[in-house]
Nucleic acid binder design. Sequence first.
DNA 1: TGCCAGGCCCTCTTTAGGGCCTT
Length: 203
Amino acid sequence: MPRAAVLDFETTGLSPDLGDRATEIAVVIVEAGRVVDRYASLKNAGVAIPAYITEFTGITNAMVRAAPPAATVMVDVHKFVGTTPLVAHNASFDRRFWLAELARAGLPAQSPFACTMRLARRLYPNAPDHKLGTLVDLHRLPRSGASHRALADAEMAASLWTRMAEDLRRVHGVAEPTYVLMQRLQTCSRKGVAAFLRREAGT
DNA sequence: TGCCAGGCCCTCTTTAGGGCCTT
């Protein structure tokens, strides 16, 4: 399995277009099915965190006030990720914040995104739902740290990504489940998944 | 003025609507 950077943001809300900001970021680098590096930091974006968000994530205004400036963190994490392709659970959410936070810091965004939620909907259509926590429990993957904190959620998404690559190999007979293959799989129609997998397995 | 996410994905669809998922 090729190198991938699994990303998770905690934020003040759902939309950077409405002024929401990232309060924490974590990136877990996976390579050959193993975690080989980690980055995590709270970020001081100079905005207040709504009480319901603090209740949800455990991240307080005092915690982000003591954190490095948002731009500093983005410079660091941008360097950390480099050209490694990105992965996130419900990537459309993290991608919007990734682009918005990089733009605010004056940094270019080049990495592609793959989405563990879209992949899971195709590989595990009968799961009770496709929330990250449900899928982690379904596959009995480890839960480390507090849910709804960036590093714990990034670790869980990384475990899920690795598990999906394993399942492509072991269950579906795909010899080499590359990042690009998984990115293509996530855009298959539901009816097209079986044919795609048969084609990739050469059967 | 008042309201406010957005993209995916299914279906009783495509001249649309509503649930899911992220914080």
